[in-house]
């Protein structure tokens, strides 16, 4: 474990707490001008469920196991909140990204490009590829509504920073322990890349107190 990865995981936690806070505070999944994509949250739940199949078989540390349980539980809870508790505020007509394309693409790629052709390894690889593109429905929704509440932008900032810091962690691990993992490196780079234009708007506007509006 290194500081980059620890802070990255904490940013991931923060993003989940921001989302839960937003939903509890506004008691909805849609604010005045921004919405949370149910598809993205369902994709994240899928990512954690397919990645942590080794939850009981591969004990790394108490930290690792605790975080895995938290990510699975929180992502399922968020899906539950959106699907049941705050269902009335969830408008599927605005969540129009074709999620089946990214699920199908990630599954096909995981069957072709993986480290071992075993059920667990292919599921893990699928979860890595899926996580890279799981934010697309949310970003797509943002482009449709054209603006977002500040708390939604903080959620996206934390989420983007988590994987961005993992890139730094991978550089550090390659440099210190010759750790190489092409699949997570490339997927992580794509994942962080998807946030670039968001980060640009976030840093140039939101942090200056302006509203988050797409040009």
């Amino acid at each position: 474990m290194n500081l980059f990865r620890l802070v990255a995981d904490l940013m991931h936690l923060v993003s989940i707490f921001i989302l839960l806070l937003k939903m509890q505070k506004t008691r909805s999944v849609a604010g005045r001008c921004s919405r949370i994509s149910f598809k993205t949250q369902a994709l994240y739940a899928t990512v954690f469920l397919t990645r942590y199949t080794d939850l009981f078989a591969n004990f790394q540390s108490l930290y690792n196991t605790t975080m895995k349980v938290f990510f699975i539980a929180s992502s399922l809870y968020i899906v539950f909140l959106m699907k049941f508790k705050f269902k009335a505020t969830n408008d599927p007509r605005l969540d129009t990204f074709k999620a089946q394309y990214v699920v199908g693409g990630a599954a096909a790629l995981a069957l072709i490009v993986n480290y071992a052709f075993t059920v667990q390894e292919v599921l893990w690889t699928f979860s890595i590829y899926l996580e890279a593109v799981a934010i697309l429905p949310q970003l797509f929704m943002l482009t449709k509504t054209g603006e977002a509440e500040v708390i939604t932008t903080h959620y996206l900032f934390a989420l983007g920073t988590y994987r961005g810091l993992y890139l730094v962690n991978w550089i550090y691990r390659y440099w210190t322990e010759y750790y190489v993992d092409w699949i997570v490196w490339i997927a992580g780079a794509v994942q962080t890349g998807l946030y670039c234009d968001f980060f640009y708007i976030y840093f140039t506007k939101v942090l200056k107190g302006a509203k988050f509006e797409l040009p």
Binding site: N58, Q60, N64, Y115, A116, F117, W124, Y166
Partner: peptide, 10 residues
């Protein structure tokens, strides 16, 4: 190369 990948990251 196929390796029994033990994934130590989240």
């Amino acid at each position: 190369e196929p390796k029994e990948a033990i994934h130590d990251e989240l």
